[in-house]
Design a binder for these strands. Structure first.
Length: 635
RNA sequence: GCCCAUGUAGCUCAGUCGGCAGAGCACAUCCUUGGUAAGGAUGAGGUCACCGGUUCGAUUCCGGUCAUGGGCUCCA
């Protein structure tokens, strides 16, 4: 039952019940018979003692079916309007649905509108979706005759002897189903974009044209989703980055290479200062290493073999080949190896804000989120096997502390286990994976296991943070490595006087400063908390008469290490306030006749609220406290 | 890399069916000295992404290059 209860009933009773829900919002879109999804119309052949679940609109599966049916209607409309188009696939996705078409010319935005219109007509007809079972061979003949090559190809790979087709209003498509009972059940949908997509996602295959759309049960839900898309657009870090003069990219410099402008750079510096100071507190040693190294180093580390497609071509220096570094690990290992280590020295924790260069294909570059040169907040921990769990526990605490400071307190955590191709002993893998699991469980952190998704050199934990719009971003990663210590013959002297191999843990908390900054911009919509704001206080005068007083106040703020600016422009207060508000400056100190006479200041907060009057010392104290506490919200 | 779209002033965008290029904001100068989100006037600012072709003439048409954007696992 939709309310989660169970009832025992005859088929006829069930049908009557479903009938009674018709036309209500809760009317089921499908049923699950003994675990298998089917349409409502398939109740006839339900055997005795079957368990039938009603798939209701509110459920994840319900929505999937709903959207999948909408994608069929899309295909129908396209086929009506462009009969030469060949159909590929059209599934539901997290956010909506798409359908891939093989069409001679491109679809235009105007086509989308026309297709939408045609879809609405098809929905209005309210034709039933009819399921037809067919032997596979028959289906192949049918689609071959219709010239639907992609469907034929799909069919040829389906192992089942019987396949199902769905027909509505004369349009037949190969489909596993289930579907809505009638097209008229689709109440709200919108086609969103046109994009290229390879047949089966493989770039060796033909490029098809994909139409993306989304569908919801009500117009209100659709509206809310479109508003969400608007909000995402408003927060776009590329747009805000330009408006707030945080960073830029330049044709002259090259794609994927970031220029940090003063406003972005001061934020980055603030983040780095915080990062360094916390790492020192947590017993990490801070390192600096070069941006290039001999190609031989990368051959030794294995990067040249396994990672070459992401590395730049070597450059020659004094007839020796050098490489821009794609990773920091080999450097940290060299530092570890520069002096003999005893078991008493472990764990050794090396951290570096290391700038690396990786080749990314031109089509995947994206603002700050996908770049070719970036700075990792990298660290490598060398420890004994018996120390892994404690180290992981430390890292988890540390990670969550850092992420929380930036206002991220909701996470999706994944534990990736041994892939098919791996290095290291089975025993090591099991022990390390066990340690990761133990640590997560001790911390009470819920996680999902990604079987076989570990890197070849060891298991890992990935943490995805959720931003205010509930979007997930992968930043933190903790990876155990059995490979590099082996390749570099890294050792420590044990209590037994013998040499032992340390375990290496790679870990990044923010991942890359560039990417993390991009996420922060979107998370805060450019309204940075005080401790991060490029300009924390703007001092502005009501008229020229108060310039001297304003300069005094400004100096006092600067002296107190507050990032202040002064606005003596020949403009009215209203104008100056508007300027500062658009720059999202947290505090405005407004000085006029009254303030100058009393030796006080009036303060306007970013949200429009006025506080004060304060003496300058009182105000400095307020700012100091808010900065020190790293308050993330204005309220 | 591939498909499609886009590239005009610092920013957001008009525009020219081939004939010397426009607005708003921002910027500069002047007037105004004004109490909580835009006071007024004047002015400066463009190789219309780049290279080539067609043409008497190209920002506009054609070809190429570069950059940016939406996509390219979600298997009927």
């Amino acid at each position: 039952m939709p309310d989660g209860t169970e009832k025992e009933t005859e088929i006829s009773g069930l049908k009557k019940y479903i009938e009674s829900l018709k036309s209500s919002n809760g009317s089921p879109v499908a049923v699950r018979v003994n675990g298998e999804l089917r349409e409502l119309s398939s109740l006839e052949d339900v055997g005795p003692q079957s368990v039938v679940e009603l798939v209701i609109p509110g459920s994840k599966e319900g929505l999937e079916i709903y959207r999948h049916s909408t994608s069929h209607i899309l295909a129908h409309a396209v086929k009506d309007m462009f009969p030469d188009v060949k159909l590929a696939i059209g599934p539901a996705t997290e956010e909506g649905f798409y359908y891939d078409f093989d069409k001679a010319g491109p679809f235009t935005p105007e086509d989308l509108e026309k297709i939408e219109k045609r879809m609405k007509e098809l929905i209005k007809k309210n034709s039933p979706f009819i399921r037809k079972a067919l032997p596979r061979g028959g289906a192949i003949d049918l689609f071959r005759k219709a010239g639907e090559d992609y469907k034929v190809q799909l069919l040829e790979e389906i192992p089942d002897e019987t396949v199902s087709l769905y027909e509505e209003d004369g349009f037949v498509d190969l489909c596993r189903g289930p579907h809505l009972s009638k097209t008229g059940r689709v109440k709200a949908f919108k086609l969103l974009s046109i994009a290229g997509a390879y047949w089966r996602g493989d770039e060796k295959n033909k490029m098809l044209q994909r139409i993306y759309g989304t569908a919801f049960y009500t117009r209100e839900e659709l509206r809310a989703y479109l508003d969400f898309l608007e909000e995402v657009k408003k927060r776009d870090h590329r747009k805000l980055g330009r408006e707030l003069e945080l960073f830029s990219l330049s044709d002259e410099i090259g794609p994927g290479l970031i220029l940090w402008h003063p406003n972005g750079a001061i934020i980055r510096k603030t983040i780095e200062d915080f990062w360094r100071s916390e790492h020192l507190k947590a017993d990490y040693k801070i390192l600096f290493t070069p941006h290039i190294a001999k190609l031989k180093l990368w051959q030794k580390s294995g990067h040249w073999d396994f990672y070459r497609e992401n590395m730049y071509s070597p450059m020659e220096i004094d007839e020796v080949a050098y490489e821009a570094k794609p990773m920091n690990c080999p450097f940290h290992i060299e530092i570890y190896k520069s002096a003999l280590k005893s078991y008493r020295d472990l764990p050794v924790r090396y951290a570096e804000l290391g700038t690396v260069y990786r080749y990314e294909r031109s089509g995947v570059l994206h603002g700050l989120l996908r770049v070719r040169g970036f700075t990792q907040d990298d660290a490598h921990i060398f420890c004994r096997e018996d120390q892994i769990e404690d180290e992981i526990l430390n890292i988890l605490d540390f990670t969550i502390f850092i992420l929380k400071t930036f206002g991220f307190d909701s996470y999706d955590i994944y534990l990736s286990t041994r892939p098919e191709k791996y290095v290291g002993s089975l025993e090591n893998w099991e022990r390390a994976t066990g340690a990761l699991k133990q640590a997560l469980e001790k911390k009470g952190l819920p996680y999902t296991i990604d079987p076989g998704e570990g890197v070849f050199y060891g298991p890992k934990i990935d943490i995805k943070i959720k931003d205010v719009l509930n979007r997930a971003w992968q930043c933190s990663t903790i990876q155990v490595d059995f490979n590099l210590p082996e390749r570099f013959d890294t050792v420590y002297r044990g209590s037994d006087g013998k040499e032992h191999r340390p375990i290496m843990i790679h870990r990044a908390l923010m991942g890359s400063l560039e990417r993390f900054f991009g996420i922060l911009i979107e998370h805060y919509a450019g309204i940075f908390p005080l401790w991060l704001s490029p300009v924390q206080v703007s001092v502005l005068t009501i008229s020229e008469k108060h310039e001297e007083y304003a300069k005094e106040i400004y100096k006092a703020l600067k002296k107190a290490d507050i990032r202040a600016e002064i606005n003596l422009e020949n403009e009215k207060v209203g104008y100056k306030i508007r300027e500062a508000t658009m720059k999202k400056i947290p505090y405005l100190v407004i000085l006029g006749e009254k303030e100058a006479a009393e030796g006080k200041i009036t303060v306007r907060k970013r949200n429009g609220e006025n506080i004060g009057p304060f003496t300058i010392d009182e105000f400095i104290e307020i700012i100091r406290e808010e900065v020190q506490k790293k308050v993330t919200s204005d309220k």
